[in-house]
Write a protein that binds this DNA or RNA. Sequence first.
DNA 1: TTGAAAGCGCTAACAG
DNA 2: CTGTTAGCGCTTTCAA
Lengths: 337, 337
Amino acid sequence: MTVTIKDVARLAEVSISTVSRVINNSKPVSPEAKKRVLDAIKELGYKPNQVARSLVTRKSNLIGVIVTDIGNHYIAEMVRGIEEIGRMYKYDILLSSSYGDSDTETKFAHLLMSKQVEGIILISEKNDDQAIDEIKNFNIPHIYINKYYDNLNLPSVSIDNYEASNKMTKYLIELGHKNILFVSAKDDKDNSIEKYKIDGFSNAIKAQNGCKDYLYSTTGFSIKDGYNMGDSIINIVKENDITAVFCSQDELAIGFMSYCYDSDIKVPNDISICGYGDIKIASIYRPRLTTIKEPYYDIGAVAARRIIKKTDGDESEEENTYLPIQLIKRESCREIK
Amino acid sequence: MTVTIKDVARLAEVSISTVSRVINNSKPVSPEAKKRVLDAIKELGYKPNQVARSLVTRKSNLIGVIVTDIGNHYIAEMVRGIEEIGRMYKYDILLSSSYGDSDTETKFAHLLMSKQVEGIILISEKNDDQAIDEIKNFNIPHIYINKYYDNLNLPSVSIDNYEASNKMTKYLIELGHKNILFVSAKDDKDNSIEKYKIDGFSNAIKAQNGCKDYLYSTTGFSIKDGYNMGDSIINIVKENDITAVFCSQDELAIGFMSYCYDSDIKVPNDISICGYGDIKIASIYRPRLTTIKEPYYDIGAVAARRIIKKTDGDESEEENTYLPIQLIKRESCREIK
DNA sequence: TTGAAAGCGCTAACAG
DNA sequence: CTGTTAGCGCTTTCAA
């Protein structure tokens, strides 16, 4: 049924080695033989069987990617980055979604291994990553990406959260805001990334006379969570003359803006709101959300690039790559005279 | 390095055939032998090499999925469906993004074939699908999904667009709207799906005395396109006392709502707007968008299911599966007394 | 119930 | 420059 290297060899009247050589350009082949092979390939519509090839070369040209949920825009964006870079180096992406379950992550990691992937990228949102330990033992290149939790002794790609948060706070101060509330996602785990953001925020405020920092911890970091915290936030805002609310995640900011809309509170006239992440909706929602742009696509791209480099025998022991962020000024924050 | 079936056989003191038999439960094995094998497997941490297995069984347990852009929420949702069903049947997903380029689609189709995928799902947004012809010739199960264009002589999964559009229009009429504008994405191609929507709309209006249908064709179907058409739409609205605008895509509706926001036109007070699709933003944006829920997840799931069924030798020649839609009533459309 | 052996389609020494 | 041959790790006859 399917045409194999043998068929090509027969038609071209050469040995299968010669065919292999022209396919892979691995060794010199006489022009005449080459031509005959190429013609035969074309005539038969021959495509090398990658499975057979993988078996002998031990190169599957596959990168396994385990994500929480591809339906999350920022994750989709990372996967885009991974895929596009992978493609450049002829790697394919084997995708699996854990929906946040650690056991599933682990199970998939093993599954990917048995499919002979050459590297694994784990995009997680959890704090306890048992999968990580397993993956480490596999002895293949791996990258850990987590927007919410640190895992410092693992190769990873992320951003400088202190700097990002600091930059945004300075911008708010520049706009004339004095009393600023930072909303962080509550977390007792000390590997939560929130602490960097809080520090960046507080230090920016402290560096400025006449400014006061307020902190609020909320539960979760979904749009819904952002909506639900609305009542509490507004109370704090009123009690303390707060003019700007800086949410540690875009989702919270968007949810909170929806709350404001529903409660007839005008953004940015009554209150300025900014977020963190620059997820897709941030630029679509009205008013458009002022935020920190986390380079999701680039994070994925760099992760893929690092995996492939390691695959090619690169030995550098770089643990964490930090990518630059950007402050995106939009209409959800206004100037205060 | 890696532990193979041989290692297991040696440790368990049986032949590799026996090991294979217990792994696959393919033939009876004596309890004692079985136990020894199982113990050996556990002790060595043996995982069968799927590549080797694929080579001999010709079953890769891989489904190839070619998408336009995984960053598109509705596509991500479909991929979720595909992946989850695939997973249930132990299939993995090989993902590739064409970014809308036909040549790339074709290239990927071939690539997937050489990776021995057992089926291909093509999620396209184009009208000219050369890739389709190629895929047909591969002689493996395939499904074609396209939200915008028909391709009737291909196995596909979609919805009944006439009914959906008809239902929405009737709802608008129920709300008391008399002059309704339907915005469709202009398209000369007669395989565009817009015609069904237009028919569904017009027929609903015609069935109702005192109602008048207006049609507007715009270019493209992105959020930006929806924004850009704002001026023209508002003119038509004003000239004809139109109270509701029914956009043939959520993206257009959202873009148009943003235009309204920026132009200080209140939705739904000044004008009711509804969309089609129920993309993620539809329920997040304020006001939330009244729309038709296209079951993206289910479309993906059904597609995967059909592929797998075919793989298992199912011969039914079902060409197109139609999935039910839902009318989602939200705040972007108001009642007119 | 078991093992020996062939072979899936390909690459990579090796010898010529 | 080319062909022969030995596997890659596994499944599957075929005999025993």
